[in-house]
């Protein structure tokens, strides 16, 4: 047992490996948060375009989701990092790349949620004299949000895990931090399991937060 702590001390504490990990964690969180905000905004926008009656908007939204969902994340990330925004702040570039990617998946999640609301709800709203957009905002979207929350949570969690490839464009994220300590100390299991535990803590924490939110939103189902 003493040996165990000795190794941990050597790998994480003595050479200040924990600082590397902490800084990597900071970058991972930063990228994931920026990306989910960008992705959510894009998702709302493009989902509304997808259900719109205006053909060019639908066409454009379909183009977006088709292209983004058809190309691997790492390839997109490298195109962003080395072609489109070559030489720019890599954290911002990574946030943008992950955000635009996540936006395509959010689009599909939100579209399915909106279209999953019973058609009678739109008819009831319109029959009362509410306009299309009033009905959408006050009646359709609140129900859609509740319905998509579980899938949206999974998207957020998937996004956090996906940011682990950010080092492809030279971001020292959490995964890269673990890898650097492994290289420097010749000990693979301490840094990698530490990193793994941190990811697990983040995803589990998020799940908890969202399931509480879900329960609160579900109150109208119980009456």
């Amino acid at each position: 047992m003493g040996k165990f702590f000795e190794v941990i001390n050597r790998v994480l504490i003595a050479n200040e490996g924990w600082k590397v990990i902490l800084s990597g964690l900071g970058k991972t969180v930063e990228i994931a948060l920026f990306a989910i905000v960008i992705g959510t905004v894009l998702g709302c926008l493009f989902a509304l375009m997808k259900i719109s009656t205006i053909k060019p908007l639908r066409w454009f939204a379909n183009l977006y989701t088709t292209i983004i969902r058809g190309i691997p994340m790492v390839t997109q990330l490298m195109i962003f990092g080395f072609v489109i925004f070559s030489g720019k702040n890599e954290i911002l570039v990574a946030s943008l790349a992950f955000g635009i990617n996540s936006g395509a998946y959010c689009t599909e999640i939100f579209r399915a949620g909106i279209q999953g609301v019973d058609k009678g709800q739109m008819e009831a709203g319109r029959s009362l004299g509410l306009s299309y957009s009033q009905t959408l905002w006050k009646i359709i979207l609140p129900q859609a949000i509740k319905a998509v929350l579980p899938t949206y949570t999974s998207e957020f969690i998937a996004l956090i895990k996906e940011t682990s490839v950010a080092s492809f464009i030279a971001v020292t994220d959490l995964t890269k931090a673990g890898d650097m300590i492994r290289n420097a100390t010749y000990n693979p299991w301490v840094p990698l399991f530490t990193v793994a535990l941190i990811y697990l803590a983040m995803t589990l924490g998020l799940e908890k937060v969202f399931s509480r939110l879900e329960r609160r939103l579900a109150k109208s189902d119980r009456g």
């Binding site: 019973d118 009678g120 709800q121 009831a124 709203g125 029959s127 009646i139 609140p142 109208s220 189902d221």
Partner: peptide, 10 residues
Amino acid sequence: FQHFNLFPHL
């Protein structure tokens, strides 16, 4: 309407 179409979230 036949199926009432009350707004379930309100």
